[in-house]
Design a protein around this nucleic acid. Sequence first.
DNA 1: TTTATCCGGACGGATTCTGCCCGGATTCGA
DNA 2: TCGAATCCGGGCAGAATCCGTCCGGATAAA
Lengths: 317, 317
Amino acid sequence: MSHPVTRVLALLELLQARPGLTGVELARRLEVDERTLRRYAARLGELGVPVEAGRGRYGGYRLLPGYKLPPLMFTEDEAAAVVLGLVAGHRTGLAVGESATESALAKIRRVLPQGLRERVEAVTDTVGHTSRAVPAARPAADTLLTLAAAARARRRVRLRYRSWRGEETERELDPYGLVFHAGRWYVTGLDRLREAIRTFRLDRVVSAAPLEERFPDPGAFDPVARVVESLSSVPYRHEIRVLLEISLAEARRRLPPTVATLSQAEDGVLMVARAERLDGMATMLAGLGLPFTVLAPDALREEVTALAGRLRSYAAR
Amino acid sequence: MSHPVTRVLALLELLQARPGLTGVELARRLEVDERTLRRYAARLGELGVPVEAGRGRYGGYRLLPGYKLPPLMFTEDEAAAVVLGLVAGHRTGLAVGESATESALAKIRRVLPQGLRERVEAVTDTVGHTSRAVPAARPAADTLLTLAAAARARRRVRLRYRSWRGEETERELDPYGLVFHAGRWYVTGLDRLREAIRTFRLDRVVSAAPLEERFPDPGAFDPVARVVESLSSVPYRHEIRVLLEISLAEARRRLPPTVATLSQAEDGVLMVARAERLDGMATMLAGLGLPFTVLAPDALREEVTALAGRLRSYAAR
DNA sequence: TTTATCCGGACGGATTCTGCCCGGATTCGA
DNA sequence: TCGAATCCGGGCAGAATCCGTCCGGATAAA
């Protein structure tokens, strides 16, 4: 072991992989005197990588979070897992910070040893998927982090938001929760501009800045249910009410929450939904393959009857 | 800038973030003489982090892949993206190497500066999901990397495999491709033990070692189709053939490949599938909401007719 | 109390670091 | 071909750093 830079990094690597090693052991591994080992530990502290030591029996050294991120000493397996994890996040839409993800990937790929890089690329090149990649619509990492921290701390945020039309508005929001749904990130909470619960897509958030104001605990507010509800509460023309002869649990498994609201009723499950066109609803009901009763509207009964007629004609071909 | 260890790491950080910086610029940023900067570059080389320099106009320094992975100097956004990417991969099942992922996450979390760690944890703690997490069934990173490299290089592998019953077998496989499907990784290829195409789950692979033998290009072999087929080629009772009045692209969007095989025909799309029960198939066809012609079997026509009758009665309630 | 662990200043000899000097090599575009 | 812009590395001398050794002391847990 020839040089201090080498040894200091080796110490960092040992401590990242194995918190709690003793000074004797670390000195042995680095082939230095214990006093020197202590100097290296101090050196890491000067680098912004504080090292804490427990004294006495069962003592040893471990890294503490510092004011900055230290060099990360990954093994090859870990680096591969990181690359594939980033790629996976990208594919599913769960990745955040397009630029942060891309630059992290670039940094790793640039220095991946040849053999490992080929193996990792073989995975990404050869793997086939049976489900489609999610179209890109990702929030900046900072937006997500800021809103999550604000939601947890119950702090109001000032939100600059760009609507689908391109208009920018600024408002204050009490963020109640974050939801990941169908490849997109949403924040839902009390919009102080409208004094109503609103849901926003994070990829449309231009900026989010925490304010000093706190908001009270929203109690049993369910962000997931709320996002799903707001996504489905487009003012469709028809309100539909159908009684399904099925259990509530099974209905929940079969029907996406974005499609209908389900509740237990006397003779089955009450499904309440909205639809622009009733023929599509008739088709969906037929596709459930179970007995149902149309409570409203009458026009849906007619659509179901018409569908039955069509099926009859198809079978007769 | 006080100390050589500090400066060498600062150089590494600069080069990871900005390949191509000139010696003059790097020396300025590190507040050292250019000659010293050159010495630092050489020092990185000694650390196993080779630095290449382009001479002449538009020259500059950049990192090369070395024989080992260097310390990775991530920004806070990048680290957050890595953590969230790993968590995303874990959730979707696309993550590999349970232990590699966990240890990489542990390494980062241990040293994330307080503020950033809280923000990242706020995300993972507060986010709600509308789709379910995939149950864990992940291959070791090494297994995946080895098989992918072998598939690409068309090298046979010796596979030790544990069946669902717990029996271990050893065989040689010509891996044609890897597929990720429904939260699981599969490899498909020519099983030299059976001399037939077989599909294996990677989480059941005990070990995979590349051999010297090469295998010929499998030509137009489609690993995705094959995996899907082998997963669905349970010997269902009925073969079904239906002509759908729809485009092939739309059919592919509406019908999961695990359900049916689709091909372009003269008057629409030919759907070939297998089913144990025809009433379920009738229901599915009704749920497509488009005209169709049952080519076979006759019993399916009867089931469609029966479904039409049932729908008629529901509408009459 | 005992055992096992970490702590840090001081010293002196050995080694390394650094800026400066300098002649040389290599790209690229006009 | 030339000029501009870039990298290269040995040598020198003064400054800085490294390292083992020494040592008295502090801290946990059983």
